[in-house]
Design a binder for these strands. Sequence first.
DNA 1: GACAGCCTCCATCGTTGGGTCGACGTCAGC
DNA 2: GCTGACGTCGACCCAACGATGGAGGCTGTC
Lengths: 216, 216
Amino acid sequence: MINVLVVDDQLLVRAGLRSLVEHADDLAVVGEAANGREALKIARQHRPDLILMDLQMPVLSGVEAIAAVRADPLLRDTPVLVLTTFDDDRDVVDAIQAGASGYLLKDVGADELRTAIRTAVEGGAPVAPVVAKRMMGQISRMPSRKIREETLGDLTSRELEILELVGRGLSNAEIGAELYLSPETARTYVSRLLAKLDARDRSQLVVLAHRAGLSD
Amino acid sequence: MINVLVVDDQLLVRAGLRSLVEHADDLAVVGEAANGREALKIARQHRPDLILMDLQMPVLSGVEAIAAVRADPLLRDTPVLVLTTFDDDRDVVDAIQAGASGYLLKDVGADELRTAIRTAVEGGAPVAPVVAKRMMGQISRMPSRKIREETLGDLTSRELEILELVGRGLSNAEIGAELYLSPETARTYVSRLLAKLDARDRSQLVVLAHRAGLSD
DNA sequence: GACAGCCTCCATCGTTGGGTCGACGTCAGC
DNA sequence: GCTGACGTCGACCCAACGATGGAGGCTGTC
């Protein structure tokens, strides 16, 4: 039996969700909350298996509430399934970074919602196709392996090491200390990197390093 | 009627997919291909409404094939739905950056697959919950608005402008030229930024700018 | 009017960075 | 054994950077 906490500031929506959720034998609503603060309080009391949460709420927004859940030692592992009306890029990214376990829109079908709840409890991340499109848009803008290999292709492994440290903002002396080299050697490498990568500054090297995804 | 091109290097899988897909009245398989090169050829001939593609393939991998589809003026708008066995972070990111329209795993249910095909054709992005979890993991590692506001909170708008240019690797003189300032003024701002953000180098400023997501 | 905050400019001085050489050692491969 | 690629170190010199402290002007607000 999966116990669900329903969080939405509109009474009507909560009622609708309750009837939807309880239509299934394996699902039950153990509480309702009208805002983030209430949600946290009730969640700590009832320890639901999943929190179904709207984002637009007074007092404590959905995103803040999700972050609070993830920060709470008691609730840390409770999946939070976002169920909201909009799919702004900003909302989606914020919710995910706050620690959401899934992201559905309110036009979701009844069966879909129930399936999503089960999926989230099992550790999966149910996401509405429109939202997934947003997510993919974000990922498209990330540094790609292709760029990495194209720009860093003919660097030796040692040069890559140095570039990575330059990309962290280290000075030549610090790089030398980090790799047990003399500062002069570090400078030699940086000079070579500048020539190879057609950069003028070490700060341009930093830009390249980040563009190539060397920051991870 | 939605015409589907099935791409997989295993005959058996293609046969299975064909029977699954054609089980619905509104779906039809208009072609099969065993690798990326074939897929492109047949796609150009038949102009399917959707391409169902495995990633692991000889000759031309799935990711490469997707990129080729997106680069082809005739096929540019044809959705490519990835259907594969694994969900490596790398595969997922590569496929998305190549231009995939969705990402399913081969343990998908028959109904789910058919629904996903329709969703993809309509412009949505069907994604398996496990894959969505990977995607969310990627997005979690991106620069967040929170960090941005925390680190850049008490900067004036002008200072932000300068920081953005520093983050692109410009020198003081270039910043001055860009903003119609004297180089000395640019230096003054950079100095202030160094003090405010507790950095020592302009290269550390570049790091901060990128961490805060000022590169977009 | 006094004041604070912001934007703009400048001069000086020490430090770092970067270009350009050259040198030595190692190791793989022909 | 020679060559070439790589890694390491150093010396020279000039340009850029960064710290510091100052200055004037422009907005607002009290």
